[in-house]
């Protein structure tokens, strides 16, 4: 509602990558997880579009719902004039805030989320206002999931979840990695011949 989802410019790009794999995909999948070990890496650019789309859908539904109630009210005239002014004012503030969340906040949050996979394990940094860095040592990883919903699949993305035996942070996840990156990280994190000591 608040903003037309940027489908058009996404679709050709993603579609182009999948069906004709001649130009780039050959070197692409393997290096990202291994090449620059200690550098922090950003999420896939597609993740920003995906999260914007999610945000737009959710806020669109909210705005449509509230708007419908207000229009019905206008027709049947339940409330008096002064109340209506406040309510409509509130409605426009809501639209503005949701639009800001969908356009600006998603970008801030996307840019604030970075990760790295090195010899120690997986490190994730996120948060715009409340910031958090979490480190999951390699040998503590019990299993990893790579999940892909319909929306993420559409953008060729995936969610990587790393499970540990920790009490308060038993699962740490990264939403919006390119699917190949997610699987290659999973392969990288898989313990090879190390005793998990259980």
């Amino acid at each position: 509602m608040t903003e037309p989802p940027p489908k058009p410019d996404v679709e050709p790009e993603q579609m182009a990558e999948a069906p004709d794999p001649e130009p780039k995909p050959e070197p692409a999948p393997a290096p990202p997880a291994y090449e620059s070990k200690d550098a922090l890496r950003a999420l896939d650019p597609g993740a920003l579009r995906a999260s914007r789309l999610v945000s737009c859908i959710v806020s669109g539904v909210a705005v449509l719902g509230v708007g419908a109630v207000l229009v019905i009210e206008l027709i049947f005239n339940w409330w008096g004039q002064p109340a209506r002014v406040f309510v409509w004012g509130g409605f426009f503030v809501l639209v503005f805030v949701l639009a800001w969340l969908s356009l600006v906040w998603t970008r801030l949050s996307h840019n604030a989320t970075v990760y790295r996979v090195n010899d120690d394990g997986l490190e994730i940094r996120r948060g715009v206002i409340w910031r958090r860095v979490i480190s999951v040592p390699r040998s503590r990883i019990q299993h990893t999931d790579v999940a892909q919903g319909p929306l993420l699949r559409r953008y060729g993305l995936a969610q990587l979840t790393v499970h540990t035996a920790a009490t308060r942070t038993p699962a740490v996840s990264l939403w919006g990695l390119a699917h190949e990156t997610a699987t290659s990280i999973r392969e990288d994190l898989r313990q090879t011949g190390r005793d998990d000591g259980v």
Binding site: G127, I129, W130, R131, R132, V133, I134, S135, V136, P137, R140, T164, A165, A166, T167, T169, V172
Partner: peptide
């Protein structure tokens, strides 16, 4: 140790 994290609130910062 399973996971280690550092959190930083705006006041902390």
């Amino acid at each position: 140790v399973q996971t280690v994290s550092v959190e930083e609130s705006p006041f902390d910062r």
